[in-house]
Amino acid sequence: MNIFRILGDVSHLLAMIILLVKIWRSKSCAGISGKSQILFALVFTTRYLDLFTIFISVYNTVMKVIFLVCAYITVYMIYMKFHKTFDREHDSFRLEFLLVPVTGLSFLENHSFTPLEILWTFSIYLESVAILPQLFMISKTGEAETITTHYLFFLGLYRALYLANWIWRYHTENFYDQIAVVSGVVQTIFYCDFFYLYVTKVLKGKKLSLP
């Protein structure tokens, strides 16, 4: 465990908590893509099947369970509890455009052709593109609430910190996982445009709105 890893995990957790707090306090999930949240729930479900096969540490197990629970509560809030506030019209990204290539790729490019390994690979590939419905929704409506941008910032920061973690692990442990690294780079690139807007607008007190 290095500083980048722990800060990355904290950012990830913070992002999920910010989103839940936003929905809970405003009693509304306006501006949030339910499709992205379903994809994240699917990402955690397929990746954390290793909870049943391998024990790493108490930290590892607890965090995985928290992430799973947060993801499912978020989906429940959007599609059940506050479904009347859900902006279904603008959440129109076609999920099959992501799911079909990601499923195909996880069968083609994996570490070993076993069910758990394919599902793990699927989760890594899917996570790299899971935010696209949310970014698509923002580009469609042309704006995002400030708290939603904080959520996105910490979610992007998490993956950027993981990149630093992988560089660190490569130098100190000689460990490097090509599937995770390539997907992590792709995932981080998707946030670059957003990071730019976040720094130039949101941090200066302006609302994020697109021209």
Partner: peptide, 10 residues
């Protein structure tokens, strides 16, 4: 075979 280093990450 499982790679523990990989499963250590979240």
């Amino acid at each position: 075979t499982m790679d523990p280093a990989k499963h250590d990450e979240l």
